[in-house]
């Protein structure tokens, strides 16, 4: 690339940074007090942690669509890795120390994921963190050569991948007679959120692990 073009791009990007910074320093006071609104409605949300309440109750729509995006991305990765070598999904066995460590850590990580899922109702945690830990366990097992790559995910695996979205959709649609989509009855909100989060944890864990596992077996 020509040197003057590079210099111009760097100059324009620096200008953008300065403009953004200037805009932030000149921001007016908040027009809407969202934290106060969240605190005021926390009692009706079914959980006591504000971020979980926003994620799964007040702005549940975002989370619902996000899970759909995650599933779409995985479908894209599956579509692209279909040329993968289907009879060579077995990884070369890793070092015995790594294998032993992975065998010891994987059950603990599942335990931590369950804890994070449960604690999300009243402290930092929740379905995404729990799903990420589950996915990390899957990647670790794959790196240790204990888990085959997903050349062709079976029916059970596909069901697990879609479970979170389906449970969330079912809960969202079940609220329709009461007025609107994703409207939980106050008395059942806590249980419904836990149900949705349990489904989401499994699906997010499988999806994130799948993003890695689907292409890990591909031989070039």
């Amino acid at each position: 690339m020509k040197a003057w073009l590079t210099a111009l791009t760097v100059l324009l990007c620096s200008g953008l940074a300065l403009a953004l910074g200037g805009a932030m320093l000149a921001l007016p006071e908040f027009a809407v007090r969202l934290p106060a609104q969240v605190t005021a409605n926390l009692d009706t949300s079914g959980v006591s942690h504000p971020v979980t309440a926003v994620l799964l109750n007040f702005r549940g729509y975002d989370t619902l669509l996000e899970v759909a995006v995650l599933l779409l991305a995985l479908l894209g990765v599956f579509a692209l890795s279909r040329h993968a070598d289907e009879h060579a999904p077995r990884a070369t066995p890793a070092h015995p120390v790594l294998q032993t460590l992975a065998r010891l850590l994987a059950p603990l990580m599942v335990l931590v994921a369950g804890y994070l899922l449960w604690v999300g109702a009243h402290a930092p945690g929740g379905a995404f963190q729990a799903g990420a830990v589950l996915a990390a366990a899957g990647v670790l097992l794959r790196l240790a050569g204990l888990l085959p790559a997903w050349a062709q995910p079976g029916r059970l695996l596909r069901g697990g991948l879609a479970l979170g979205l389906l449970v969330f959709l079912a809960v969202a649609v079940a609220g329709l007679p009461q007025g609107s989509l994703l409207h939980y009855p106050v008395s059942m909100a806590g249980a419904l959120i836990l149900l949705v989060e349990a489904g989401l944890t499994l699906s997010i864990g499988l999806t994130l692990a799948g993003l890695y596992l689907a292409s890990a077996g591909a031989k070039r």
Binding site: L34, V38, A53, R59, D62, E66, A73, V77, L80, S81
Partner: peptide, 26 residues
């Protein structure tokens, strides 16, 4: 005052960014 709404949005965004990165890598 910590606003939980942007925090939830960022949590959503991080997951979407991971998915987009994986698709881009594929």
């Amino acid at each position: 005052i910590i606003d939980p709404v942007p925090q939830a949005m960022v949590l959503t965004g991080i997951v979407v960014a991971i998915a987009a990165t994986a698709l881009a890598l594929a």
